[in-house]
Design a protein around this nucleic acid. Sequence first.
DNA 1: CCAATCAGAGAACGTTCGTTCTCCACGATA
DNA 2: TATCGTGGAGAACGAACGTTCTCTGATTGG
Lengths: 179, 179
Amino acid sequence: MDRDEAVTRLLDAAEVLFYERGVQAVGMDEVRAVSGVSLKRLYQCFPGKEDLVVAYLRRRDRRWLESLADFVAARESHERVTAVFDWLDDWFRQPGFRGCAFINSVGELGATSPEVLAVAREHKAAVRRYLLGLVSDRQAGEALNLLVEGAIVTAAVSGDPAAARHARRAAAALGSGGA
Amino acid sequence: MDRDEAVTRLLDAAEVLFYERGVQAVGMDEVRAVSGVSLKRLYQCFPGKEDLVVAYLRRRDRRWLESLADFVAARESHERVTAVFDWLDDWFRQPGFRGCAFINSVGELGATSPEVLAVAREHKAAVRRYLLGLVSDRQAGEALNLLVEGAIVTAAVSGDPAAARHARRAAAALGSGGA
DNA sequence: CCAATCAGAGAACGTTCGTTCTCCACGATA
DNA sequence: TATCGTGGAGAACGAACGTTCTCTGATTGG
């Protein structure tokens, strides 16, 4: 097993564990056990736990936005806003859905780790940029962004995926009423 | 100092510390130091840390919603939706604003502590009920709820209170376009 | 075949933290 | 005054965790 594979297996294990149970509830030894990478190697690849957390968040940022963008790009341009909420709806229904990894990490570590806060900020800024690009005017874009964030957090806390439907309806109402 | 005052001082200290730095980053000894209540008494009032966390969240739930409702009730009925966002705007600007205590707690402990998750769910359900009662139809209420949650989380992560303004505009657009 | 390097397994270390225990001072009561 | 219960201060305890160290075995290059 070369270094690249070790990194991949570590990030895979970190993502499953940290997302499911939170960062502080997972020990490095558990990351070792799930990844199958020795502790020594783990600390060669990531000198500290925070580095692993940041790397996990960075990879998730990239993949999350790519997955959303790919899904939306496959639709006709007039359907793209509703496609965002279709994608969210799917996500909310996945077993093990536990909300936004970045919001959760900020809740846990935002006050302690400036690095984690910065990654979360970059992620949210990228999501907002992307959503602003989907609609014609700025105000509708900001509203879309707020509806998306609101749906994620509501679905996460309540455990009810209906938030996606409500957000889609609200976005549609905004689109017909205000644009 | 009687028991009631001890409880109050403990909850005051817990609220400041837990909200500012997160639950897991604060030790019981620090709660003792800030509250001025001895460790022995602390464990008489709250048999474990989780009890203190739950009590802190319950009190905050009550006060938060009361504060919002009082502010809104002082306005004319046609201004009440915008008043919600005025109140949020104020909150976001307060020094030490660190987002929603319940979302943060769920991110930290939701996977570990069913009690904390339940309190957060009750809080969000109460907020939603309250907001649904502010507007005539159900759809507009759901949209209002999502905009509020989205604004809170966006302001928290980005650190920019502009989310309140964007949400207010979106709610106004919905009100004129869709109700 | 030997020396040197590296990797893995897991013990070990030091710290932090939740919780409990010990010790002592004090106030009330017979 | 002697005693009892209460409360505070802080030591103590046991567990968990991040991180490092040790030992051992395998591999590689000469």
